[in-house]
């Protein structure tokens, strides 16, 4: 049985007919398997949702307890069968609870990567490469210009800037789910022991990470804490140039994102201190991962699929872009939580 028979593309997203479920559907469906809780993958209103306990918990924080008719938690590596299709969730290393989903039917194995990265991350388990026939990979940063810098080195830049401008508040734009908590954890790994301040939009998810056992040290709300000269304040990217930022002492605008690799992206947003820290695989990570899966067919979603498709066609794979309209990248759009 070919992979195409297991998964097809419908307007609502990737659909498995044999199991009658969707993966990361874009609109409400009766049954959904969800890779991770970023809003472009995890939407509210499905009949039944299967995901990791962490993903379900974060969805409940974002959308309210009744975000789905029914939910079912799955552990990494747990074997499940849905109408004859074997289903497994495996760490994707993207954010807390993020998973790749593997489907096996007969002899065909297909892996949907969700979003993933290969670098170690103190806030979530590391990506596990899975052997498969068809690999559906994201390619948010699917161009050879994207090479993630060493995250510790980027944190070093932030700390150096803090030393250089001890009178200025360092506002660090970071996505509220995953990136913000990873930055705090990286600061702690670098030995930074002052309080880290956060924007209100980061509060609930950060508290959830702490409850889940991720050590983040002394995290405080920026609201009501004054102008915070010399301190590090994390906020959603959209808040950097918001009215909100004017409370602070000569704020210095930093942004932690893979996009910071390209100058134009930093300049466009008025960023003075770009930090290349990404929760997505960079070009080398994408290429290595495709190799490791030993797949014969590669389908590419998200972002910039063309380069990866070109590259692996040359290496003899069947490769094609998979245009799923509506999958943005959680990093490209300014999250709506900014106003929270």
């Amino acid at each position: 049985m070919a992979a195409a028979d297991i998964l097809t593309l419908k307007p609502a997203g990737l659909y498995c007919a044999a199991g009658d479920f969707f993966i990361d559907p874009l609109r409400p469906v009766p049954r959904a398997l969800i890779t991770h809780a970023h809003s472009d993958h995890a939407r509210a209103g499905h009949g039944h949702v299967l995901a990791t306990a962490e993903t379900l918990a974060i969805m409940a924080i974002r959308y309210g307890e009744n975000f789905a008719g029914a939910t079912q938690a799955v552990r990494y590596g747990e074997a499940l069968t849905i109408s004859g299709v074997e289903v497994g969730f495996f760490p994707a290393g993207h954010v807390l609870g993020s998973a790749q989903i593997r489907l096996v039917q007969g002899r065909a194995r297909i892996v949907v990567s969700g979003d993933y990265k290969r670098e170690p991350d103190p806030t979530c388990p590391t990506f596990e490469p899975l052997a498969c026939d068809t690999f559906i990979s994201e390619a948010t940063f699917g161009l050879p210009v994207f090479r993630n810098a060493d995250a510790a080195g980027e944190i070093g830049k932030l700390l150096a800037s803090q030393k250089l401008f001890p009178e200025r508040t360092h506002l660090v734009g970071a996505y509220p789910l995953g990136k913000a908590q990873r930055i705090i954890a990286l600061l702690r790994q670098a030995g930074y022991d002052r309080p880290v301040y956060i924007h209100g939009a980061l509060e609930k998810i950060t508290a959830y990470y702490q409850r889940a056992g991720i050590a983040l040290g002394d995290v405080r709300m920026a609201a009501g804490a004054g102008a915070l000269p010399g301190e590090i304040v994390l906020c959603p990217p959209g808040a950097i140039n918001d009215l909100w930022s004017r409370h602070f002492a000569e704020p210095r605008a930093a942004f932690a994102s893979g996009w910071m690799r390209v100058r134009a992206h930093a300049r466009q947003r008025g960023i003075e201190l770009p930090l290349v820290i990404s929760d997505h695989a960079d070009w080398d990570g994408l290429c290595a991962t495709v190799e490791e899966t030993q797949c014969s067919t590669l389908l590419v979603t998200h972002g910039e699929p063309d380069a990866l498709v070109h590259c692996f066609r040359q290496r003899g794979l069947e490769a094609a872009p998979l245009h799923i309209l509506g999958y943005g990248d959680e990093e490209a759009e300014t999250p709506t939580e900014t106003d929270a």
């Binding site: 161009l143 050879p144 210009v145 910039e304 380069a307 590259c311």
Partner: peptide, 10 residues
Amino acid sequence: VLFDLSYDFV
């Protein structure tokens, strides 16, 4: 090909 795609993006 990879260069052109990259240049278009950057």
